[in-house]
């Protein structure tokens, strides 16, 4: 069975994928749908949702269109999620691979270094980094990447260690291939499945982290994001519930979709581990 057909048997994963694709398309179409951008004031403040034509989700404290903010926010969330995950992989995969492949003192140093990052609470470190670097899209992405690579390094190290013990790696050594060649051509390709699964879940975590940072007011002040919307609306949560409700729903849906996809990928890539009772 091909990868796709195995993935397609998991209905939840397919729904997750559809939701994610929808979010991506909407995010891409934002400038077409709202050419004036998310910051433009379009009506009087605190209009309830579903009351006014053209403003299905109402307006916020300054009379801005909540729907426009939501859609522009999707761009930020997805961008930060993807870019920070790619950066985290770029740090974690090589470090973990080298540690697992060479072992010994290389492993010791790499893992102590990783543990150094793991002992600091993720979110606290992210706040500190953003505060030092001054809040901007770049600094947020970088700090999220910096706090999320250690689990990648650990995973890759464990996978590489187990693959390196297989006999075909011994065979490659006997063929006189260089260590670099063995690591990149023989070992790493056999560790991609768990890395892909982890990456999909990391995107979800990164979106949550970015929202949390923006909620605390540590977001980029020039960029509309879901976390910023919720944060700005928290003082009026009792009188204007929709200001924090809809961005919240958007976060939940996107993160849930990514988690479903991750789980579906996990089952599809490791058919032998498929949990029982699921068909």
């Amino acid at each position: 069975m091909s990868l796709w057909s195995r993935f397609a048997t998991n209905r939840a994963a397919v729904i997750g994928l559809i939701v994610l694709i929808a979010v991506i398309i909407i995010a891409l179409l934002a400038p077409v749908m709202f050419p004036k951008g998310p910051w433009a004031m379009v009506q009087r403040p605190f209009l309830a949702p579903f009351d006014t034509d053209g403003l299905p989700l109402g307006t916020d404290t300054l009379g801005r269109n909540v729907l426009a903010g939501l859609i522009y926010g999707a761009r930020v969330s997805l961008l930060v999620g993807l870019v920070s995950t790619v950066m985290a992989l770029l740090i974690g995969v090589p470090l973990g691979a080298v540690a697992g492949f060479y072992g010994g003192w290389v492993d010791e140093i790499a893992m102590r270094f990783t543990e150094f990052f793991q002992t600091i609470p993720n979110f606290a470190l992210a706040i500190v980094l953003v505060a030092i670097l001054e809040p901007s899209l770049t600094s947020i992405t970088i700090s999220i990447a910096i706090v999320s690579w250690p689990p990648v390094a650990r995973l890759v190290r464990a996978e590489v260690m187990s693959v390196t013990r297989r006999e075909y790696v011994d065979a490659a050594r006997l063929a006189g291939l260089s260590n670099l060649h063995i690591l990149t051509r023989q070992v790493l390709p056999n560790t991609v499945s768990p890395i892909i699964v982890m990456a999909s879940l990391m995107v979800a975590t990164a979106i949550l982290l970015e929202s949390s940072l923006s909620f605390l007011g540590l977001g980029d002040p020039n960029i509309m994001s879901w976390g910023y919307q919720i944060g700005a609306a928290r003082t009026v949560i009792r009188s204007a519930w929709w200001l924090s409700f809809f961005p919240g729903v958007a976060i939940v849906l996107t993160v849930l979709a990514l988690n479903l996809i991750g789980e579906g990928l996990n089952d599809a890539l490791n058919p032998h581990l498929t949990r029982k009772g699921k068909s």
């Binding site: 297989r166 006999e167 075909y168 011994d170 065979a171 006997l174 056999n190």
Partner: peptide
């Protein structure tokens, strides 16, 4: 060398 386990001695990819 020719290895014991025919399933582990060839790279599946």
């Amino acid at each position: 060398m020719v290895f014991q386990d025919p399933y582990a001695s060839l790279n599946p990819r």
